[in-house]
Simulated assay, not measured.
Amino acid sequence: MPIEKDEFSALYPCDFYTPEELFEPDQMYTVYEIARLLQGLEPDAEIDEGTEEILLDWAIPWVMTNAEDLVVAEPRTDDEPGYYGVERDGDLSSNADDADE
């Protein structure tokens, strides 16, 4: 049920970090680490599973919204998630253009 804005003591802008603000340019992050960073936590911060699920609800759309500024790497092993980082000049593999066709 919607709530009247007047019922809240304060309203704030809905502002998210850009990839350049969030990531170190030479690092790659899992979506779990991105979720923590978006909340101002360290990437390896210990959080409970329920909180992590809520944070992922913010992180996944953020990744999708910022996809043009990101690079992605496949997991190194089958039990590892993918990794995301801010795109820098020269980051893309030479065969990346072939994957788009």
Results as ranks from 00 to 15, higher is better:
Pro2Gln: 09
Ile3Arg: 11
Lys5Met: 08
Asp6Arg: 15
Glu7Tyr: 10
Glu7Phe: 09
Phe8Pro: 11
Phe8Ser: 04
Ser9Phe: 08
Ala10Asp: 07
Leu11Tyr: 10
Leu11Arg: 10
Tyr12Asp: 09
Phe16Ile: 05
Tyr17Gly: 00
Tyr17Thr: 09
Thr18Trp: 07
Thr18His: 03
Thr18Met: 06
Glu21Phe: 02
Phe23Ile: 03
Phe23Ala: 03
Phe23Ser: 03
Pro25Lys: 04
Pro25Asp: 01
Asp26Ala: 00
Gln27Gly: 00
Met28His: 07
Tyr29Ser: 02
Thr30Gly: 11
Val31Phe: 03
Glu33Pro: 00
Glu33Asp: 08
Glu33Gln: 15
Arg36Gly: 10
Leu37Arg: 08
Leu38Pro: 10
Pro43Ser: 10
Asp44Trp: 15
Gly50Val: 14
Gly50Met: 13
Leu56Ile: 11
Ala59Ile: 08
Ala59Ser: 04
Trp62Thr: 03
Val63Asp: 06
Met64Gly: 00
Met64Ile: 07
Thr65Leu: 05
Ala67His: 08
Ala67Trp: 06
Glu68Pro: 07
Asp69Val: 02
Val72Pro: 00
Ala73Gln: 13
Arg76Gln: 12
Arg76Val: 08
Arg76Cys: 09
Arg76Ile: 13
Pro81Val: 13
Tyr83Phe: 11
Gly85Arg: 03
Glu87Cys: 12
Arg88Tyr: 01
Asp89Ser: 15
Asp91Trp: 11
Ser93Val: 05
Ser93Tyr: 12
Ser93Asp: 12
Ser94His: 12
Asp97Gln: 13
Ala99Gly: 00
Glu101Thr: 12
